[in-house]
Design a protein around this nucleic acid. Structure first.
Lengths: 351, 351
DNA sequence: CTGAAAGCGCTTACAG
DNA sequence: CTGAAAGCGCTTACAG
C-alpha cells in the first residue's frame, strides 16, 4: 500500500546482478545473458517492479508523452478523435496528456508553459478554433507538432486534414445532379482553413455548373448562428431549395428549424447535406446525408507524422490530405438513378 | 529551436547565484533574499527558463500528474466531464493524462501498468462501464483514487456521484403527479450502481404511490437496446403512457421510435423523461424533460477529494452525493398547475 | 555480456 | 538567507 515503490536496485539485489543489468533487461538497449535476463524478469515480476518512466525521461531526454491541445469536447467528433489518437499513441509507447486552450492570450501563454514544463515529446493541436498565436508559440518552442483537422496556410507546420475542398465539391455536385439550382452554403469560419476549403469546394462546383449561390454565409461553426441564418434565408422572397452546411453539428440545427419551425419537408421541399458524419448523423431523427471525415486514417496519419518528426527533428514538414466520402442518407434528394448507401444501418453498432 | 533547454544551472550562472537558489525561487520552499529573487526571475525570463517538471518529479515523489481512465467519449457527458476535470486540476497545478480502458483483462493490466509507470499522483475512474477488476487493481496499487459518476457498493474507495436514487424518484413522482398510471422504466445497467440507484428511486416512488410498473428493463445504457425495448413495449396489448429512461442518450432513441416509427405524439400520447441533461436535451428536436447531473459541482468535489487523498494518504474514504435537479421541458406532461422551467432557452449559449 | 561511474535537472536536509 | 553535497531512479558511454 503506502510502501515505497520497488526500484531497479531492489530487483538487482534480489537477482544477484547489477542495477544497470536490470535496466538493460527492461530497455533492451544491449544484449543481456538470456539466463540472467530470465532471472531478472522473474524477480521483477515477483516484486512487482515497474520501471519508473519519470527517471527514464530525465536522462533519456524523451518523456514518452504527447500533449494534445483541444478547445472543447462537446462536439462528439473531437471526443472520438481524442480517444482514437490516445489509443494510437499508447500503442506506440506514448501516453497522452490533454490541455484545454481558450483563445485568450494569457491562456495561450499558460498552455505553452505547461507543455514545456511537462517535457512533452510532441504536440497535437486539434481544434479548429485554436488561435494562430498558439500555433506560432508552439512552433517556436521547437517541439515537434502536428495540426490535426485544422489547416493553416503557413507552410511551416505539419498537418493532417481531410480534403475539405474535394468534400465541398462532392456535396455540392450531388445537390446539382439531383436537380437543385437554388443552393445555399452555411459556411464554417473564415479563420479556419477547414471551413474555407469546404466553401471553396462549394464555390468551384457551383461555378463549374454555371450556378450562382443563393447565399454563402459564415456561421462560425456555431449551431445557433446556422439556425438564425436558416430562418433569415427562408424569410427572403426566393429561399433556397438545398443547403450545404459546413458541419453536421450545424446541420442538425438547420434541420430542426426547417422541420419544427418552418414545417418544411426534408428532402421534398429542401435538401440538406452536412459534413463530418458525426455519430448522430445516422439517427433516424436526422438521417443526414454528409461527407464523412475518414477519422481512422486521419488519426493514423497524425500519429505517424508526429512520431517521425520526434525521431528526426530535421524532417521536412508534411501536409497530408485524406480524401472524404459522401454518405448518402435521406436528408437530400437523390440524383436520377442513384440509390442510397447501405451504410447508415451498420454504423450504430458501438453506441 | 533544436537548442538545448535552459536549466536552473544556466540561470544560476547568469544571475550569479547557486543553482539551489534558483530552485528556491521557483518552488518557494524557503525564503530567498528578495533582491536576488528578483534578479533570478529577470534572468530566467530573459533566457526563457521553465523548470523541468520531470526532474522535480523524480526527487519530490510527486509527478503532479493525474490519470483519468475512461471507456469512451462518444457520450458528450464524458467529454464535458473530461474537459472540466482537466481544467479544475490544471488550476490546482496538475496535468491530466488520459487512459482508455476496454474491459478485457489484458487491457486492464496494461492500463494499470501504464498508470504506475507514469507515476501519476492520483487516478480518476470515470466511466460507468469500467470493470470492477480495474477498480480493485487500482486500489491495490495504493495510488489515491476517486470514482467519478460510477458508484460501487464497496466502501473502500472514494466516489462522487449524483444522488441517483433521489433523481429517479424525482422523475417518477413528476410523472405520477401529472396523472400517469402506466409507467415503464428503461433502466441502465445492473452492474453499475449508477443505473441501479435510479431504478430503485423509480421503484420506491411507484410503491409509495401504490403503482405497479408496466415494465422495468435493463438496457445496458445502450441506445439500440432501449429502442428495441420501446418497440416491444408498444407491441404489447397494454403499453405504457409514460417512460422514465435511465439516461438521455437512450431517451433520444426512445423519442425517435415513438415519433418516427410509431407515429405517437409526445407528450400527448406518451411522456418521456431522461437523465443527465446532456447538451442536446434542450434542442427543440428533443425538448427532453430530464434530471440534470450537476456536473460542475461533481467535478469540483472530485478534484477536491482526490487532492485531499493525495496530501493525506491515510484519509478515510468518502462518498459524496450531489443532488440533481429536474429540468422540465416539453417531452413530459405537466402536473396540474405546474409550469415549465424557464431554463431551456438559456443553456444553449455556448454551443 | 556486465559492472563501476557519471549524469539527467531538479529538491532538500545540512552547515554555516 | 545560501552554498556544497547528496540523492531521486534510471540510461549510457567506458572499461574490461
Amino acid at each position: 500500500m503506502g510502501s515505497a515503490r520497488v526500484t531497479a536496485s531492489d530487483v538487482a539485489k534480489a537477482a544477484g546482478v547489477s542495477q544497470p543489468t536490470v535496466s538493460r533487461v527492461f530497455n533492451r538497449s544491449t544484449a543481456v545473458d538470456p539466463v540472467k535476463a530470465e532471472r531478472v524478469r522473474a524477480v521483477a515480476k515477483e516484486l512487482g517492479y515497474i520501471p519508473n518512466l519519470v527517471a527514464r525521461s530525465l536522462n533519456s531526454g524523451n518523456s514518452f508523452r504527447i500533449g494534445i491541445v483541444l478547445a472543447y469536447l462537446k462536439n462528439g467528433f473531437f471526443g472520438e478523435a481524442l480517444q482514437r489518437l490516445s489509443k494510437a499513441l499508447n500503442a506506440r509507447g506514448y501516453s497522452v496528456t490533454v490541455y484545454f486552450a481558450g483563445n485568450r492570450s494569457d491562456e495561450v501563454n499558460a498552455i505553452v508553459e505547461d507543455l514545456l514544463a511537462d517535457q512533452v515529446d510532441g504536440i497535437v493541436l486539434a481544434s479548429i478554433s485554436l488561435s494562430n498565436e498558439l500555433v506560432t508559440r508552439v512552433r517556436k518552442s521547437g517541439i515537434p507538432c502536428v495540426l490535426f483537422n485544422r489547416g493553416q496556410s503557413d507552410p511551416d507546420v505539419s498537418m493532417v486534414t481531410a480534403s475539405n475542398f474535394e468534400g465541398g465539391r462532392l456535396a455540392t455536385d450531388f445537390l446539382i445532379k439531383a436537380g437543385h439550382r437554388r443552393i445555399a452554403h452555411l459556411a464554417g469560419w473564415r479563420e479556419a482553413l477547414n471551413g474555407v476549403d469546404r466553401k471553396n469546394g462549394f464555390l468551384a462546383a457551383m461555378e463549374a455548373a454555371n450556378l450562382k449561390p443563393v447565399a454563402c454565409i459564415d456561421c462560425h461553426f456555431r449551431r445557433n448562428v446556422a439556425m438564425d441564418e436558416t430562418r433569415r434565408l427562408f424569410a427572403s422572397p426566393k429561399p433556397p431549395d438545398a443547403i450545404f452546411v459546413a458541419n453536421d453539428h450545424m446541420a442538425f440545427g438547420v434541420l430542426e428549424v426547417l422541420r419544427e419551425e418552418l414545417a418544411l419537408r426534408v428532402p421534398e421541399d429542401v435538401s440538406v447535406i452536412g459534413y463530418d458524419d458525426a455519430p448522430m448523423a445516422n439517427w433516424k431523427t436526422f438521417d443526414l446525408t454528409t461527407v464523412r471525415q475518414p477519422l481512422h486514417r486521419m488519426i493514423e496519419a497524425t500519429a505517424t507524422l508526429l512520431l517521425n518528426e520526434i525521431q528526426d527533428n530535421e524532417r521536412p514538414h508534411e501536409k497530408i490530405e485524406i480524401p472524404g466520402e459522401l454518405i448518402v442518407r435521406g436528408s437530400a434528394r437523390l440524383p436520377e438513378g442513384q440509390i442510397r448507401s447501405a451504410l447508415s444501418a451498420s454504423v450504430d453498432a458501438q453506441d
